[in-house]
């Protein structure tokens, strides 16, 4: 059993970090996991993505062309990845940053107004955790608790004051469940 996840957005939206948190949580649950970033001559505001593969056996390729799940944090990612999601897969889109709906009907998609939710929580930086919460709720391989615990166990203590806001963001995000495939 293997699940491939791509998280994509603008540099600065925390896409690489969200992928790392997911990878830590998978590791703590005893699963095989790889995390690999797109790396290049990029800067804040440019595009960034990472691929996370979670499996119960030794992982071959850390990169995929047909991911099971994509989290699109912005419009370019919605456009780029909509056609790549595996049939029957999950596509989670940050509604705050796009101007259209998902067109494909053969995938589970859900729109999450992640920027607004993060602002309600009082910290714009929590957008990625809202999206991660939605991902977990639609994926069923790791409970939200496992990610909360991973944050606590692996974040440096100086950042622990942010844990309650992270928890809130994950939980709010996890209430967005994709519609069944029509």
């Amino acid at each position: 059993m293997q699940t491939e996840i791509i998280i994509a957005g603008f540099g600065g939206q925390g896409v690489l970090f969200a992928g790392q948190v997911l990878a830590y949580a998978a590791m703590d649950q005893g699963m095989h996991v790889t995390w690999i970033p797109s790396y290049g001559p990029e800067m804040r505001g440019g595009t960034a993505n990472c691929t996370v593969v979670i499996s119960d056996e030794e992982i071959g390729s850390p990169i995929v062309s047909r991911p099971t799940v994509v989290v699109a944090m912005n419009k370019p990612s919605l456009d780029k990845y909509e056609n790549m999601v595996k049939t029957g897969g999950v596509f989670i889109v940050n509604q705050s940053m796009v101007d259209r709906e998902v067109e494909r009907k053969d995938i589970h998609s859900v729109m999450v107004p992640a920027n607004e939710i993060a602002e309600e929580i009082g910290d714009k930086r929590m957008t990625n955790m809202v999206m991660l919460g939605a991902l977990l709720a639609n994926l069923n391989i790791l409970p939200v608790d496992a990610v909360e615990k991973a944050l606590k166990d692996h974040l440096p203590v100086k950042h622990h004051k942010l844990l309650p806001a992270n928890r809130q963001a994950l939980e709010k995000g996890s209430s967005f469940i994709a519609a069944p495939v029509s």
Partner: peptide, 8 residues
């Protein structure tokens, strides 16, 4: 790729 990847 091996330089940039993270794995347990």
């Amino acid at each position: 790729s091996l330089g940039q990847i993270m794995e347990p």
